[in-house]
């Protein structure tokens, strides 16, 4: 994926991020319960996450804090707003 020079406010849904890209979590959904359960697993706003796997359907795999791998359902990924994290994260 080529990294377009987007302004930092260009938000998108986590479910749209391609595998290998690193993004910053801006906002998580509406439900407090959902937010809290994700926080329990270590996923909070302000965090950088790398999308490890994201296929046309089914759940996504995220890398949080380098060593933790989280699988989250697609429905939930729709509710997580992210923006591209300005870095050279992609490896060839």
């Amino acid at each position: 994926m080529s990294n377009a020079d987007q302004p930092p406010q260009a938000m998108m849904m986590l479910s749209m991020v391609s595998p290998g890209e690193t993004v910053e979590v801006i906002r998580i959904g509406e439900g407090r319960r959902l937010r809290k359960r994700l926080a329990d697993l270590g996923l909070t706003a302000g965090l950088q996450v790398r999308v490890v796997q994201n296929c046309f359907a089914g759940p996504l795999i995220l890398a949080v804090k380098q060593d933790c791998r989280l699988a989250i359902g697609r429905g939930m990924a729709h509710k997580i707003q992210v923006c591209p994290y300005k870095t050279h994260s992609d490896k060839g």
Binding site: L34, R37, I61, D67, C68, L70, A71, I72
Partner: peptide, 9 residues
């Protein structure tokens, strides 16, 4: 049940 799960190494 919202699907969220840790994948341990």
């Amino acid at each position: 049940q919202p699907f969220m799960l840790e994948l341990p190494p």
